[in-house]
Simulated assay, not measured.
Amino acid sequence: MVCLGNICRSPVADVVMSARVAEAGLDEVVEVFSAGTADYHVGKGMDPRSAQTLTAAGYDATRHRAQQFDHAWHDEVDLILVMDHANHADVTAGRERARVRLFRDFDPVDAGGEVPDPYYGGEEGFGEVLDMVERTSAHLVGLLADVVGR
C-alpha cells in the first residue's frame, strides 16, 4: 500500500487490509505493509486523525511507523497498490508496471478511482477514506481467497 507520506491513506489501507487478511485466514500467505513515496515522515506514527478514525472503528492504529517506498520491492512483492495517479507515476518511473495498480481498481463501487488525500481537509475526509478502504479491502480479500483456493 503506497501513498505520498505514509501517514494517512496507505497506513489506513495497511491496517484494514491486514485485519481482513487475518479474518480470512490468509495471513500465512499474504503479507501487507505500507510506505510513502516521499521521506517526509519516515519513522513517525500515522496522522492522529487517521489513527483516531481507525481506533473509533475498532482497528489497532498503534504499531504503524512510516517508511519510504523502496524500488527493490518491485522484485520482491506480487502487487503494489497505490492510492492515486501521482503515486503510480512515482512508483513506476522507469519500472515495470504490471504489478502496480491503483488500490481502487478493486473497489466494487467505483473501480479505478483514487483514494483522496484527506491530509489538508476536514475530519470527514478521513471517514470517507476509511469507507473506501473497507469496501475495497473486503472485495480484494475475496479475490485473494479465490486465488489461493480458500
Rank of each mutant, 00 (worst) to 15 (best):
E96G: 15
H64P: 05
F106V: 10
D75Y: 06
A89F: 07
V109Q: 08
R99H: 13
V82C: 02
T62F: 07
R95W: 12
A57P: 04
Q67T: 15
D110P: 02
R99C: 06
R104M: 09
Q68S: 08
A66S: 13
Q68V: 14
A111D: 02
A89L: 09
L81P: 01
P108R: 08
F106S: 02
A86M: 07
D110C: 12
R104W: 01
V100L: 06
H64W: 10
A111M: 07
W73A: 01
R99K: 15
V91M: 03
A57L: 04
D110A: 15
D78M: 09
D110K: 14
D105F: 12
A93T: 12
D110Q: 11
F103G: 01
T62N: 08
D110R: 15
D60P: 05
A66Y: 02
G94V: 14
H88S: 02
D105H: 14
R95V: 12
V77K: 09
D70H: 14
A66P: 05
M83S: 02
V91S: 02
L79M: 10
V100N: 04
A66I: 10
R95D: 02
D75F: 07
H85E: 05
R95M: 15
A93F: 15
R99N: 12
A111C: 08
D107F: 10
A61L: 06
H85K: 14
R104C: 14
P108M: 07
R101D: 00
A89R: 14
A86K: 06
R97S: 11
A66R: 01
T62Y: 04
H71K: 13
Y59H: 11
R104A: 05
A111R: 09
H88Q: 07
D110S: 13
F103N: 00
A93W: 09
E76G: 06
V91Y: 01
D107K: 07
A57H: 07
D107V: 14
M83D: 00
L102C: 03
D75C: 04
A98C: 03
A66D: 00
A93G: 04
V82P: 00
V100G: 04
D110W: 08
L102S: 00
V100W: 04
V91F: 02
A89Y: 05
A57G: 08
V82M: 02
H74I: 06
M83E: 00
A98H: 10
H64C: 08
R104P: 01
W73T: 03
Y59K: 09
G58W: 14
H85L: 06
L102R: 11
V109F: 03
G94W: 11
A93E: 10
Q67A: 10
R95F: 15
A72H: 14
A72M: 06
Q67C: 08
V82F: 00
G94A: 08
V77Y: 07
A98I: 05
R104H: 03
V100F: 07
V109M: 03
L81C: 03
D107A: 11
R97F: 01
D90F: 11
A111F: 05
V109S: 06
F103A: 01
F103T: 04
V109C: 02
R104K: 14
L102N: 01
R65H: 13
D60M: 11
A89H: 12
R101L: 03
H85C: 00
H71T: 15
D90V: 12
D78K: 11
